[in-house]
Deep mutational scan, measured.
Amino acid sequence: MEVRTIKVFTTVDNINLHTQVVDMSMTYGQQFGPTYLDGADVTKIKPHNSHEGKTFYVLPNDDTLRVEAFEYYHTTDPSFLGRYMSALNHTKKWKYPQVNGLTSIKWADNNCYLATALLTLQQIELKFNPPALQDAYYRARAGEAANFCALILAYCNKTVGELGDVRETMSYLFQHANLDSCKRVLNVVCKTCGQQQTTLKGVEAVMYMGTLSYEQFKKGVQIPCTCGKQATKYLVQQESPFVMMSAPPAQYELKHGTFTCASEYTGNYQCGHYKHITSKETLYCIDGALLTKSSEYKGPITDVFYKENSYTTTIK
């Protein structure tokens, strides 16, 4: 009895394709271990004539594949690729409408935090270190965002349907971005203890939790000093293409032309909904596939993004 075979390709990165001759009487799992086709788990399936010449994702289970996976995804987590594939199996079914010149995501599976993050990423200057993220990001900007969303979920250790947080998501993504040249110098002034300067680099240099107003941050924000008295913390120097200011959701007025974009969060910790506000020729609110415009805006804002380049204080 002759062994019926077909020729397929296996890959971990969709760049390096490895030619395989597979036995049609055995499952993919018996031949390769966990195997995925377009995100779908085909591990328990036997090869079919229609699979001839198709590319299958496999887990990096030998040295060659491990090197290829690390170079593309910059992670050695053995569960990463499987999590990416199972997320992709959902995100490829989502709709990605162009809204006001940006790629958004039609609401499904509690994905409003991903839509808000995706919209924000198209408006701030950011370059990702893992080629996987950078490639998928370019495709997302062009309207094909399924891979990018699935990668975000995998890097953030999230599953489809789980509630997510924009600030946490951005923080994970910033860790995989090139923020080497970003720098922030802060000064804390206390009447009792004097003053202390701190220099922050990388992710810490672009994120701040405690106030939404970048102007206020430049002037000074009140913080408790270690001595128990009130101290003032203010920005001395900022070198970065953008800054992200966050605070627990509270009524906040966004003035046209003073910011790049913002995240609105309605609801409580267990259950809520994100919308995205962007400042173009007027203010726009993007909620999944829905767009509304207004000249002014007041609502429960939790993150505001500002364009920056270089700032030095005039406070002496």
Rank of each mutant, 00 (worst) to 15 (best):
L118I: 10
E204G: 10
P249G: 01
N110H: 07
G257V: 06
K127P: 05
V21C: 14
Q238A: 05
S240V: 02
V221A: 02
Q222N: 10
P78D: 15
L173A: 01
K229L: 10
G228L: 00
Y284G: 00
N129C: 07
T103L: 03
V42S: 09
V221T: 05
M85G: 08
L37F: 13
P47K: 01
D63Y: 06
Q122C: 04
M85S: 00
R167P: 07
I277L: 01
G267I: 04
E264K: 02
L291A: 14
L290I: 13
E168G: 06
T19H: 12
K233G: 10
V185D: 04
Y138P: 07
A142K: 14
L119M: 06
A247I: 03
D62L: 09
Y306R: 08
F128K: 01
T302E: 00
I286E: 00
Q175K: 12
Q195Y: 06
V160Y: 01
K106M: 08
D62F: 04
V203F: 06
Y265K: 04
T64F: 09
Q197C: 08
T258N: 00
Q222V: 08
N16I: 13
V42F: 15
A247K: 02
G288D: 00
Y274H: 08
K298V: 15
Q196W: 10
T292P: 00
G299L: 01
L212S: 07
V236L: 07
T55I: 13
D62V: 06
F80Q: 00
I301P: 02
T76A: 15
N16H: 09
F128N: 03
K280D: 07
P248I: 06
T292H: 12
T116I: 00
R184Q: 03
A40H: 12
T120R: 06
Q197W: 06
Y28A: 02
L114Y: 04
Y208H: 06
K7C: 12
K106Q: 14
L37V: 10
S86G: 12
A87R: 07
L254Y: 06
N14W: 05
S104C: 10
Y252Q: 01
Y214K: 02
L37Y: 14
E125R: 04
V203A: 13
I315L: 15
D77Q: 07
T198H: 13
D135P: 04
Q98S: 11
T313D: 11
S294H: 15
A117L: 00
F9W: 10
Q134T: 10
A108K: 08
T211H: 01
M85P: 14
Y265P: 00
W94V: 04
P249F: 12
K229P: 00
S181I: 00
E253C: 03
E125D: 15
A117Y: 10
V99T: 12
N187K: 15
P248R: 07
D165Y: 05
R139S: 13
T91V: 06
N16C: 10
L173S: 06
K106G: 13
L114F: 08
K7G: 11
V221Q: 03
A108Q: 13
K293I: 07
E168H: 12
S279V: 03
A154V: 07
G53T: 09
K255C: 01
C227R: 03
E308P: 08
N14T: 15
Y155M: 07
T314K: 14
K275H: 04
L65S: 12
K316R: 15
L88K: 05
G228H: 02
E125T: 07
Y155S: 00
L290T: 13
Y155L: 00
G29W: 11
A154F: 03
V99M: 14
V166D: 03
G194W: 04
S310V: 15
D165H: 05
E168K: 15
K255Y: 03
D63L: 10
V221R: 02
L291N: 03
Q30L: 13
I15V: 15
V166T: 06
T55V: 13
A69P: 03
Y269P: 06
A117N: 02
Q134E: 12
F56T: 06
Y297P: 02
S213R: 13
H48N: 14
F70L: 15
H256T: 09
S86N: 14
E253Q: 00
A146H: 11
L200D: 06
Y297N: 14
A262Y: 02
I124D: 11
T11W: 08
P60V: 11
K7N: 12
Y72R: 10
Q216V: 07
Q196H: 13
N129F: 02
L121D: 01
H51S: 05
T313P: 06
E204F: 03
S50N: 12
C156P: 02
V22F: 02
E52C: 10
Y36N: 01
P224N: 13
T198Q: 15
G101S: 03
E71Q: 11
A177R: 07
T192M: 03
M244H: 03
M207W: 12
G143P: 02
F174M: 05
